[in-house]
Amino acid sequence: MAGYIPVSETAVFWENTFFSLASALYILAMLFYLTHFSSKKQFGRFAAIVLRLAFLTHSVFLILRTINVQRVPFVGPYEFGNTFIWATALVYLWTEWRLKEKYYAVGAFLTPMIALYIAYLTVVPRLIPIVRISRAHQQLRPVLQSPWLKIHVSASVLGYAGFTLAFATAIMWLVKNKAGEKSALGQALPHKNTLEEYMYRAAAFGFLFQSIMIITGAIWADTSWGSYWRWDPKEMWALITWFVYAVYLHARFTQGWTGLRTVALVMVGWVAMVFTWVGVAWLLTGIHSFA
């Protein structure tokens, strides 16, 4: 007995249209960033404009979804995925806006991540049958009707966005490392130290919100399930992710680790985050099966 909210066909049409439009614009932005990166410098500003357009279109989608479901669009894989993509774009655009052109190269690595996440919501379910991304407008189950839902999910999408940005920078570092300082590819990328610091800032941002996510999740569980920690797989994977980034931050702070070792830790952290997000839902079972 699952409850669905009646939504008119027109409303569904506009919702889907804006989702497709936003996806297309994100991918277009990706192409422009990549073109900029492969030495056509004039494409950088263009890419930034298209990405902002994509972000606006995606915002419209989220507003339409909010109207259609009559609550925050934070529930189920489709809504969570969209909110997460939106937050990733937001965090990136904010840094780009602060740091200007210097940051366009990061865009060439960040936008493919967004494309990957969009693929998870659209193409992947067709290829892998166990992944089911329903677009149905579900009623909120009573256990989810809590103000903590909003804080918890907002923190988690910001945390995941930070980790995504850190991961994109880690890939840049690897590319830079492989290509060498002198090559054209190497020249197009910021200095390794700069990349490591971008990576650190993004990971630290993610870590703060991941911590808030875990804490608010515990408080919420405490009011609705009667216990703040149930050792359930989703909770454990969030904690595992947190541990990995804690190791990374310490290695950097105190041990002065730099280079490949820290880059590797950031990448492992991202894998743990993705597993918390998609792996637990489709491969492991638990009381979080709604997320």
Binding site: M236, I240, V244, V247, A251, Q255, V280, G286
Partner: peptide
Amino acid sequence: SMQLGIILLLALAFISIIATLGEHEAAV
């Protein structure tokens, strides 16, 4: 020391990963 801290955190992470792959009640 931080070294020990890192070792312990990695150990907790690693054991938790293994534990989540099995049955939930058994893991608890």
